[in-house]
């Protein structure tokens, strides 16, 4: 029974959470206010934990909630509930998309949406750039971070380096110089 409800709750979030990234947080708050499954402290813990662990916040939250309620199996069921709508919707759209490409009107609409997505990416960059200087909700300017940012950007623009390599390198540099 618990598993079924867990699956359903996260299936619902996966189906209706539009916007992605941290836009999912209002949906997760319904788990606190509506279902009383997790406390508000849990929610802020999980957001902090999500920042320190890889992967999307929504996935982390699903695993954490399911795990807290029903152990490892619960974590898996909740995560499965969250990703199932995406798999179905994408499966259908992928098929339709091949046909839609033949209609100039659909292509015209979609091209315009893509242009707006570029603007959206730009604003996500600004958010993430400001996050570099964020320490416990306080904005602290650190010249070393600017230098590291500029250096990395310069190197990456000239040489094609796999992103994973400079994620690891900057993590190590950060730990060594105590950012």
């Amino acid at each position: 029974m618990t598993f079924l409800v867990l699956f359903y709750r996260f299936f619902y979030i996966g189906l209706f959470a539009v916007g992605g990234g941290f836009a999912i947080i209002p949906f997760l708050e319904t788990l606190v206010d509506g279902a009383h499954w997790v406390s508000r402290d849990d929610l802020s813990n999980i957001i902090a934990l999500a920042e320190m662990t890889p992967g999307a916040v929504g996935v982390n939250m699903a695993t954490y909630t399911g795990f807290a309620l029903a152990g490892i199996a619960g974590g898996l069921v909740a995560t499965l509930g969250l990703i199932t709508p995406s798999l179905i919707i994408v499966g259908v759209i992928s098929r339709l998309w091949q046909h839609a490409k033949e209609f100039p009107l659909a292509v015209s609409v979609f091209n315009a949406v893509k242009a707006a997505v570029v603007g959206l990416l730009g604003s996500v960059f600004i958010t993430l750039f400001l996050l570099i200087f964020q320490e416990q909700d306080v904005f602290i300017f650190d010249i070393r971070k600017i230098i590291l940012f500029a250096l990395t950007l310069g190197i990456v623009s000239y040489f094609k380096i796999n992103a994973i390599i400079y994620i690891i390198l900057l993590g190590i540099i950060g730990a060594i110089i105590g950012l």
Binding site: K114, V118, L128, F129, I132, T152, I167, I172, A175
Partner: peptide
């Protein structure tokens, strides 16, 4: 500290992604 370094890498990645998408679209 390591995470602070990783955040810098993430910002660089996003800026590169934005530029490449802007050039394509």
């Amino acid at each position: 500290s390591a995470l602070a370094g990783v955040r810098i890498a993430v910002a660089v990645m996003l800026l590169t992604l934005t530029f490449s998408q802007a050039r394509t679209v």
